[in-house]
Simulated assay, not measured.
Amino acid sequence: MTPIPVFDGHNDVLLRLLTDYAADPTKAFIEGTKDGHLDLPRARAGGLVGGFFAIFPPNPKKTDFTAPGAIGGNPPLPEQLTLEQGRQSTLAMVRILLDLTRSPDSPVALCRNRAELDAAIAVGKLATIMHIEGAEAIDANLDMLEVLYAAGLRSIGPVWSRSNIFGHGVPFHFPASPDIGPGLTAAGKDLVRACNRLGMVIDLSHLNEAGFWDVARLSTAPLVATHSNAHAICASARNLTDKQLAAIAESNGMVGLNFATGFLRPDGAMRGDTAIDIMVRHLDYLIEKLGEGRVGFGSDFDGANIPSAIGSVAGLPVLTDALKARGYSDALIRRLACGNWLDLLERTIG
């Protein structure tokens, strides 16, 4: 059977390509790799038709937040990056995505609006949205934002969980409230206004609660968390409270289910033997709070410890089959898997 088409809210494959396949990242992605979660052959096997391709500036001192047990408790976060550190890695990953999508014959397309997404998917190309997770490459004057927008950037998370000049991220604490630390800086508020002017998604996934409410007060766009879960089920500081979910619903926004096991499980453990049923429980809850048209997938492929039953992007049918078994209609599954993200992007980037 042909897998149900999936448009995914978040992956970190560009960083893996930069780190592990710097000699020829385009070849590695298109021909396939033996490690990680995502490449083109496995995307096709799992039904992935597109998604947000994140650019995450890595920490100089590597900390594995995806290792079993790494998220539990209160692990310290890395120090703030310098502008040069953020810019160097960000531009390198932009280059990889541009190289992947530059040729008209490429099986991967960089898309800037809904029409380009639909056109790419219709001809079987993998439709990508350029997304930044942590705006360390962008200066306070926002000159680099304009440059990156011209290159194709259409979605941005102002912070990863570490702090930067724009605001303060939410740490990986469990169990904990996301109400940890101050919110956006003056530069962060300017960034939100600029994103509204340009027509960009503002991703709230790694903002702390104070920053979330700063964006909610300032932004004229739908509120979006590309890869977050329900705090009522898993009390990770990275997850969204009912009050936050209500604000997202009121704005006609969107939440993508994060596959990271530490943000799924009630015990907050990063364990591969996590049952698919807990993913369905989160989807049930998110739909109850947000409505059927405001929930999707935000896997965090190549950036998280995901359930072993899924394993990689090729395992996406495991989740859609579980939804069928739960009694979800085919039409609803298709909305959750793909249609809702496309509609959200039309409401934000045009």
Rank of each mutant, 00 (worst) to 15 (best):
C111D: 00
V215L: 05
T2D: 11
V192N: 09
Y149F: 15
G50M: 02
G183H: 02
G36Y: 01
F56G: 02
P158R: 06
L342W: 07
D20K: 04
D284W: 04
F174L: 05
M254T: 02
D24K: 06
G50V: 07
V280L: 03
V147A: 13
K61V: 12
W213G: 05
R271F: 06
D343G: 14
A140G: 04
L91W: 13
E209N: 07
L126T: 11
A28N: 05
H37F: 10
L77R: 10
E116N: 00
P175D: 03
T82I: 09
M270W: 03
T348E: 10
R114K: 10
I156H: 07
V94C: 04
R162S: 12
L15D: 10
A237G: 12
P307Q: 06
I349Q: 11
G272I: 14
L198S: 09
M200R: 13
T220H: 14
T19F: 01
A325I: 09
D214C: 08
F172R: 00
G181S: 00
I4M: 07
A119R: 12
V280N: 09
T274S: 13
L218C: 07
I4K: 08
D24A: 09
I349K: 04
D105C: 00
G124A: 00
S163L: 12
Y21T: 05
N305D: 02
G327R: 04
E116G: 07
T90H: 14
G152H: 14
L191C: 07
D20I: 02
H231G: 06
G69V: 11
L110W: 09
S308I: 08
V49T: 13
A22S: 06
A70W: 00
T66D: 12
R265Y: 00
F174N: 01
E31G: 05
R197M: 11
P222G: 03
S312I: 02
A122K: 15
G211C: 03
S251D: 05
R217G: 12
L344I: 14
A247Q: 14
L91F: 11
D39L: 04
K189C: 01
A216G: 06
C195A: 15
G86V: 00
I132W: 01
G303C: 09
S103P: 01
R102V: 10
A43Q: 06
N11W: 05
T241D: 02
S308E: 15
E31L: 11
K289T: 15
M93Y: 03
A210T: 00
P107S: 01
A260N: 11
K27V: 03
D179G: 04
S205E: 15
G86F: 14
G46M: 06
R16A: 13
T63F: 12
R16Y: 08
A67G: 03
Q244I: 03
D330Q: 10
D39W: 04
F263Y: 06
A150H: 13
L204S: 11
I333E: 00
T128L: 08
A249M: 02
L15K: 06
F301T: 07
L18F: 13
A54L: 04
P78H: 12
E292H: 13
A325V: 13
I287F: 05
A140D: 12
P222V: 07
T82G: 15
K189P: 09
L148I: 00
V201G: 06
T274D: 07
A246Y: 07
I121C: 07
C111T: 13
R347W: 08
G86T: 10
A210M: 10
P317G: 01
L15G: 02
T101F: 11
A304Y: 01
A216Q: 09
H206W: 05
N196Y: 13
